[in-house]
């Protein structure tokens, strides 16, 4: 089975974010970047499917040069090769335009299965996978917690709300968006890191794929959210702060 995993590089989770002078994106200098967490679970699922059923795992990633570090990490974990769509300014592409770029690149591989995370930790629009499926003419399912091969197709477990789940079948090829927690993530081994150095990374640009930048929706500005509540900060040493909180819990919330 040939599996493509679309993954995104995002600022590390604990990053302190500052709005860039343009007011339209964050200041990316001084940030460290990592694989978007749900995409890491998608990669792990692909690697496990390959171990069970054979085949090939291809990483697909659009991003500037720095994204190469996340691609290397995916190769070190066991992906076979990668396609890096190297673009410095992805801000000029809205979700639809970027999904076009990814779909074009994915189509050249004729994959049996395309996996990606259910959403990104930065933009969080949760759409790239579904839009890719539509553009590629593939059936899809989202927020997936289990993937099984069933005959010539798939049987997948969708997470619904409030603790409900549902199985659904669909033919291959297909696209799935993977929920965090579907599996246990592996670490790259030293051997894996060594091997990754000789694995193929194909570099392309969006222009090579014939997809021009386009935005039907543009960012007017980004800013820190206003506080909904006036948080009373209890300061002092840990002990002093704890004592102040106990006062509040006892005399205001009345739960002690």
């Amino acid at each position: 089975m040939k599996i493509i995993v679309a993954l995104k590089q995002v600022p590390a989770r604990d990053s302190q974010l500052k709005v860039a002078p343009s007011g339209k994106w964050i200041d990316e200098s001084d940030l460290t970047f990592e694989i978007n967490e749900p995409d890491a679970y998608a990669l792990e699922e692909a690697l496990q499917l390959k171990e069970k059923h054979g085949g090939e795992v291809i990483v697909l990633c659009a991003g500037p040069e720095r994204a190469a570090s996340s691609i290397r990490e995916a190769l070190a974990k066991g992906a076979d090769r990668a396609i890096h769509i190297e673009e410095d300014d992805l801000g000029a592409y809205d979700t639809l335009a970027l999904a076009r770029v990814l779909a074009k690149a994915a189509e050249t591989e004729k994959p049996d299965l395309v996996l990606t995370g259910l959403q990104s930790d930065d933009l969080g629009s949760g759409q790239t996978g579904v839009v890719m499926a539509e553009l590629m003419g593939l059936p899809h399912a989202t927020i997936i917690m289990q993937v099984e091969l069933a005959g010539a197709g798939l049987r997948v477990k969708r997470e619904l709300e409030d603790g409900w789940f549902q199985f659904a079948g669909m033919p291959l090829p297909a696209l799935l968006t993977i929920q965090s927690g579907i599996n246990k993530l592996r670490y790259a081994t030293l051997m894996g890191i060594k091997k990754a150095k000789s694995k193929e990374i194909r570099r392309l640009t969006a222009a090579d794929l014939g997809v021009p930048p386009r935005s039907t929706v543009t960012v007017a500005g980004i800013f820190a959210p206003p506080r909904m509540k006036q948080t009373q900060i209890l300061d002092g040493s840990p002990r002093e702060a704890a004592a102040k909180l106990v006062e509040k819990l006892k005399f205001e919330a009345r739960v002690i």
């Binding site: 809205d94 979700t95 639809l96 999904a99 259910l118 969080g124 629009s125 949760g126 759409q127 579904v130 839009v131 499926a133 539509e134 553009l135 899809h140 399912a141 989202t142 927020i143 969708r158 997470e159 619904l160 709300e161 039907t216 929706v217």
Partner: peptide
Amino acid sequence: HTYQVRDFAPKLATRFGQVLISD
């Protein structure tokens, strides 16, 4: 912005050449 909407609305918007402004 429910789980179900996340499953189909991006596809529907794509049919009209639009991007869903989600959540």
